[in-house]
């Protein structure tokens, strides 16, 4: 069967990245189901948990956004609990996927095999970037759909579907942003043993900056430097939208990262 080179590589990557996709998706979906199933008991004991939260240090309350939203509504509960995991761990998955998909060929020296085939380097980038997009999107669709089912199962009252939709789109955009940055970084960081610490470290540093910007007035301007802030749950729940400025920043990061990846990957000595 004759098919485009992009498709051949895309299908190959589909197989190659399937296992990690299944593991990450299953873990986060199950984790979310577990957390969301705690909601009814918490919503039934508002008073007790409210007393408890008041005892929390101010910093913790701000980090979790509990000063802005209540964890006794289902959106607030999701936004302060599961949302942390889908954004943080989802971003680590996305970054690792983006950062290893090109560099793996080089660290395992299979790039010579691939480059000896009648394919351009741009074709390789296109096929692999498309694969990253595909898996991250599928990951988010499955997560968001199961999350919606959980919402319906445990809700105590009606909630804003629009806000939930935004809380589902936010992590997706966040993951794509990290994946695009990962793709670009992997042009420079090739060795398998460096790809992991660099990727995970980058996401954690970004998360840390997010934490700092929410607890310190002085550091509040740092919020522009961390993608986590762009999709902050309390803001999305309150405004029922992702701020246009943040949307634009994310789209710019994604576009610039991918464009730079094409240019640099084409110039690289393998």
């Amino acid at each position: 069967m004759v098919m485009a080179s992009e498709m051949i590589i895309f299908i190959r990557e589909l197989k190659r990245n399937r296992k990690s996709f299944i593991i990450w998706t299953a873990s986060l979906v199950l984790f979310n189901i577990m957390i969301m199933s705690l909601f009814p008991s918490i919503a039934d004991n508002t008073k007790m948990y409210d007393e408890m939260i008041k005892e929390f240090p101010k910093g913790i309350i701000e980090v979790f956004g509990l000063d802005k939203i209540s964890m006794f509504t289902i959106l607030g509960f999701f936004g302060t609990e599961s949302y942390l995991f889908i954004t943080l761990f989802g971003s680590i998955y996305a970054m690792l996927l983006g950062a290893s998909i090109l560099s793996k060929e080089e660290s395992e020296k299979t790039i010579e095999f691939l480059l000896a085939k009648p394919v351009t380097r741009s074709t390789i980038v296109t096929a692999k970037a498309a694969n990253v997009f595909f898996y991250i999107t599928l990951f988010n669709l499955i997560f968001s759909f199961t999350n919606y089912l959980m919402f319906e199962a445990v809700k105590k009252e009606e909630y804003s579907l629009k806000a939930l939709l935004m809380l589902s789109a936010g992590p997706w955009l966040l993951h794509l942003t990290f994946a695009a940055i990962g793709l670009l970084i992997s042009v420079f960081v090739v060795k398998a043993k460096s790809v992991y610490p660099v990727s995970i470290g980058f996401v954690l540093v970004m998360y840390f900056i997010n934490v700092m910007s929410s607890i310190s007035e002085k550091l509040t301007n740092l919020k522009y430097f961390t993608p986590f802030k762009y999709v902050d749950a309390p803001d999305i729940i309150i405004n029922e939208k992702i701020e246009p400025i943040y949307l634009i920043i994310m789209l710019i990061i994604i576009t610039v990262s991918i464009a730079a990846t094409y240019v640099l990957y084409n110039r690289k000595n393998m």
């Binding site: 190659r16 395992e108 020296k109 299979t110 010579e112 095999f113 000896a116």
Partner: peptide, 10 residues
Amino acid sequence: YLPSEVNYYD
């Protein structure tokens, strides 16, 4: 192309 060192997908 036949490379001197053979590296394929594991």
